[in-house]
């Protein structure tokens, strides 16, 4: 069993490392693919495993992006001058400055987002069910709007990020590597978490929060820890994405609530939520479909996407992993005792 799993991971690692060399023209889409995988996987930590369906994880993505931008620039320039000058100054970053700034920026983004999630947790985790979803959606929307009013970070004009100093081919590889690395680390960490007692505890919260609390699980603390892990990775990937795009702006790039914010949920559902591999498979499938329709159905891609979302959710609720587990239970080591599933667990 371990051998097979190990082989699978080795295979994915090999494919992930080799892909950019074989298909260099698709490198940027593949980088985006890993971002999607990371988003879906970390969303599932709360949405699938803990039963808290957040529609606002994108808040951490955007905040991370801005934190890293500020850190990267503030180390060497006055941020307010940089953003308000409307490009009148053309800042130069040496190689060391760029990489040191990027490294510290990503770290700061991760930890900053973590802190934010911790604080938000006090307010948000009192809400349950759809109220949590709508509350987090509201926070993400407001965050984008409010970020646009802060002139220090350029307001609605956005910030042009320092540009990668070396050749463009290296740049693509570098960011691909970062995305792959972050997605892989997140996946392995989640895999480990789900196997610990913490994983069982958050599952208990999902299944019946009041009982879990009655059993002595400090639910608020566990929920906050869960969200903090998600936030850390969303912050880091936000920082990476901001540098990949090169130009950040509050509503469309940093806090894309209606695109990335919803996509991550859709991907997790497509693959099957509450499973380790579901979000990964969902993300891969979703991303491939998205990019294909975008290429071949010019202007119609959103119609296609809406249809896919509806069909997925309305007619294919269980997701791919759910379907596989139902069809081939032995493969997953599931024994079936024919008890009816507890349908109204969440009601």
């Amino acid at each position: 069993m371990l051998g097979r799993r190990f082989l699978l991971y080795l295979l994915i690692l090999g494919a992930g490392l080799a892909a950019p060399w074989f298909y260099p023209q698709y490198i940027q889409q593949m980088a985006l693919l890993w971002i999607m995988v990371l988003m879906a996987s970390t969303w599932d930590l709360l949405g699938g495993q803990m039963g808290y369906n957040s529609l606002g994880n994108i808040t951490f993505f955007g905040c991370g992006m801005y934190i890293s931008a500020v850190v990267q620039i503030a180390m060497f320039y006055d941020v307010a001058a940089y953003t308000s000058a409307f490009g009148a100054i053309k800042p130069e970053f040496t190689d060391e400055q760029y990489f040191m700034g990027l490294f510290l920026g990503i770290l700061a983004a991760g930890f900053g987002a973590m802190l934010l999630s911790y604080l938000l947790g006090f307010i948000m985790f009192g809400l349950r069910g759809p109220y949590f979803a709508i509350g987090t959606l509201g926070i993400a929307t407001a965050a984008g709007q409010l970020m646009g009013t802060i002139d220090y970070v350029g307001g609605g004009s956005g910030i042009s990020m320092p540009f990668f100093p070396w050749a463009v081919e290296i740049r693509a590889l570098f960011f691909y590597g970062l995305c792959f690395f972050l997605a892989a680390v997140a996946h392995l960490l989640l895999r480990w978490i789900y196997s610990t007692q913490f994983g069982l505890a958050i599952n208990a919260i999902r299944d019946d929060e009041d009982k879990a609390e009655a059993m002595g699980i400090p639910t608020l603390k566990y929920k906050q820890i869960g969200w903090a892990i998600t936030a850390f990775f969303m912050g880091c990937i936000g920082a990476v994405f901001g540098n990949m795009v090169g130009f950040i702006e509050p509503v469309e790039v940093a806090f894309p609530v209606a695109t990335f914010g919803i996509f991550m949920v859709a991907m997790a559902l497509l693959g099957g939520k509450g499973t380790l591999w579901g979000p990964v498979i969902g993300a891969v499938l979703f991303h491939v479909i998205k990019e294909t329709t975008w290429t071949y159905l010019l202007g119609w891609q959103w119609v296609a996407l809406g249809l896919i979302l509806i069909i997925n959710i309305v007619y294919f609720q269980e997701g791919i992993m759910g379907w596989l587990q139902r069809k081939f239970p032995e493969f997953f080591g599931i024994t079936i005792d024919h008890a009816p599933p507890d349908k109204d667990a969440e009601q």
Binding site: G129, P130, I262, L305, G306, L307, I308, I310, N312, Q347
Partner: peptide, 14 residues
């Protein structure tokens, strides 16, 4: 509860 939220989001896009 969450399903209807997402399904109607798809409808909204459409």
């Amino acid at each position: 509860m969450f399903t209807s939220l997402l399904a109607t989001f798809g409808l909204s896009l459409l």
